[in-house]
Each structure stands twice: as C-alpha cells, then as structure tokens.
Design a protein around this nucleic acid. Structure first.
Lengths: 183, 183
DNA sequence: GATAGTTGCGGAGCGGTGCTCCACTTGTCA
DNA sequence: TGACAAGTGGAGCACCGCTCCGCAACTATC
C-alpha cells in the first residue's frame, strides 16, 4: 500500500507540469498555475510539495546526480584539463536549463539544512576530484578551490542567460575563465 | 513653475525610500511599502514612477554616471591594466549594492528601448576605452570584447552575492578573471 | 460485492502583491 | 480671494503563496 495509486499519479503529473512551467517562466513560476495545468487542486500540490523549494529539489536532484555520474566517468580521461572543462560546460548548461536556477544551486550549496544539500555536495565532490586531478597534473593552478570554481561557473552561466546569444557568450566566458585557471 | 513644490518633495522622498528599500530587500521590494515609508499614497508613487523600472532607472542612472566619470578619470593612469582592474572592481561593487541589480544592468544593456540604455551605453563606452587602452599596451588579450567583459564582471558580482563571504569571493574571482584576460 | 476507515483531494480564505482609476484636495497665479 | 489645473490617495481588480479542513475516493477486509 504505502502510497495510493491516485496520489502517485498526481505526484508525477505535478512534477511534469512543474518542470515545464519552470522551464518556461523561471523558478518563480506560479504554483497555482502548475496545479491548474496538472488538473489538480492547489491543496494537492502543497500536500506533495510543502514548499516551492521541495518542488525545485525534486527536479534538481536528478540534475545533480547526472552531473555527479558524468564527473565520475571523466575521472579516467587522459586530458585532465579537457575533462574538467567538459564537465564545467555541462554544469553551466544544466544550470541554464531553467532561468533562475543557478541561484538555487548556490543557495543549496550554502544552506546545509536544505534537502538538496546532500545531492549537491555529492556532485560538488565529484567535481572537486576532477579539479584535483587536473591540479595534480599541473594543468590548473593549485590555489583554485572547488567552491570558487562552482561559483565562477554559476556566475558565467547566469551572465550568459542575460546575453543576446547565451550559448555563444557562455562559450567565450568559459574559455576566458579556463585561461585564468591555468598556471 | 513647471512642477509644484509638493510634487517635487514627494518625488525626492520616494526616491530616498526606494533606495533604502532596494538596498534592504533587493530589487523586488514592495512598492506599496516604499510609498508607505515615504508617507505617500500608492497612487502618488505610480504617478511619479509609472513602472518599477522607472524607479530603478532613476537610482541607477547616477550609478552609471559615476562609473563613467570614474572610467574617464582612469584614462590617464600609467598602469593600464591596474586601471582597468580598479574600474571593474568598482563596477562589480556597485552592482552588488542592491541585490538583484546586476540582472537589471544586463537587461538595460540588452534592451535598446530602455530609458536606462543611454546612460548605460555611455558607461560601457567609457569602460571600453579603458579596455582598449590596456589592449593597446599589450596588457589584455586583443580578442576580448567590452560586452564580454561587462557580462563577465556582472556574473562574478552576482555569484559573489550568493557566497558566504561576498567581498572575499569577489576578490578571488576577479583575480582569476584578470588572469584569463591577460595575454 | 459490501463496508469501514484511512488517505488524499480541492478550494475557500487570508494576507499580501503590482498596478489602475478617479473623486477629491491643494498649490499657484491672476 | 478665487478659479482651476496639478497632484493626491486609496478603493478596487486580478493575481500571488500558502493554510486548513470538510469531504470524496481508494483500499484492505470480510
């Protein structure tokens, strides 16, 4: 039993609509609207996701897990710097999927109470291993920290979002940033 | 005559309260609250500033003008790269004065209809002269554009805002960025 | 199948928001 | 001092996030 069948169905419906709404209107999309689009009462939405953050969390956790796995798969790459850059590119692209999301990523990193924190930390540590490997190979300056790196990339992703040609701008900014990271 | 004395007074009161409110609650502070704190009806606020952007504009224009003047005064500095870095630091710090403002800066840069656009462009061009001078001196890579530079610094300012120690983080990120900008 | 009981649902309601509109007050100039 | 344009203020509209609880619907048992 645990969960009733209709509850499970509504949960999935809400999640799908939330994903669409956040992609369309950014992270401050109307939750009433999400419920409406899912054909469900507003109370039902709040029953399943007590806060807006809970909703974001559900969406972002898979993001984080994917990034962690990606980082781990890159740990055996020959070119450590290229591996790091590839991962940072995907991190930035993932952040940009929903407007306003980079802010949530950083907030989750900061707030240890956040339920997102765990999966976010796991992702960060996978990224840190990638960084350390590149540093050990002398490809990245030793004094660069993982926190700094994530903040940097989040900032670039954010700035690119605002530009006329986001993808192109992100590419330029990432390239410049990588130059600053090398010894 | 032109404007009545009381209207002028209310305008100034509103502007002062708006500045305080934006600094305290970010750029989405409650306008009703601004009017309340200024001891004025909400209608009066909207009479003077038809949109939230108009209010931001009035506040930011002085910011931009100050940045432009600063850039111009740095044009005669001996160390072109240091001059650029100093100005970028002030740009970032100015952006961070109000949470959420960097986004408005970039939006104004993008939107040519914006009333902010003119003063923003003037500031950007003053910054661009600073950049070109450093490039001519061989201190900054030639292919870096002014747009890219402003986006970069805005992104770093934004990311720093989110960090635990904003000022310190901004310093680290700016240093890394400058490294990426040098040939 | 029928039934009991728990689980989940929906939306009215509260206090807030941005913004509009217009009856009324107030400053100004003749 | 008065006429009148300029300026005011807040009621009102449609929305928001979020809470609460009477009621409907699903499920385990018989």
């Amino acid at each position: 039993m645990s969960t009733r069948a209709d509850a499970r169905r509504n949960y999935d419906l809400l999640l799908a609509e939330a994903r669409a709404a956040f992609a369309e209107h950014g992270t401050d999309a109307s939750l009433r609207d999400v419920a409406r689009r899912a054909g469900v009462g507003i109370g039902t939405l709040y029953r399943h996701f007590p806060t807006r953050e809970a909703l974001l969390e559900a969406l972002m956790r898979s993001n984080f897990d994917g990034l962690r796995e990606h980082a781990e798969s890159l740990l055996t790459a020959d070119d450590t710097a290229a591996a790091l850059q590839e991962w940072l590119g995907r991190l930035a692209a993932g952040s940009m999927a929903y407007r306003g999301l980079p802010e949530s990523v950083l907030a989750a990193l900061r707030d240890e109470q956040s339920q997102l924190h765990e999966s976010c930390v796991a992702m960060r540590e996978a990224g840190a291993r990638l960084l350390h490997r590149a540093q050990a190979a002398g490809r990245i300056r030793a004094e660069v920290t993982a926190d700094e790196l994530l903040a940097l990339v989040s900032g670039l992703a954010w700035a690119s979002e605002q530009a006329r040609h986001p993808a192109e701008m992100l590419d330029r900014l990432l390239t410049t940033a990588m130059r600053g990271l090398t010894p």
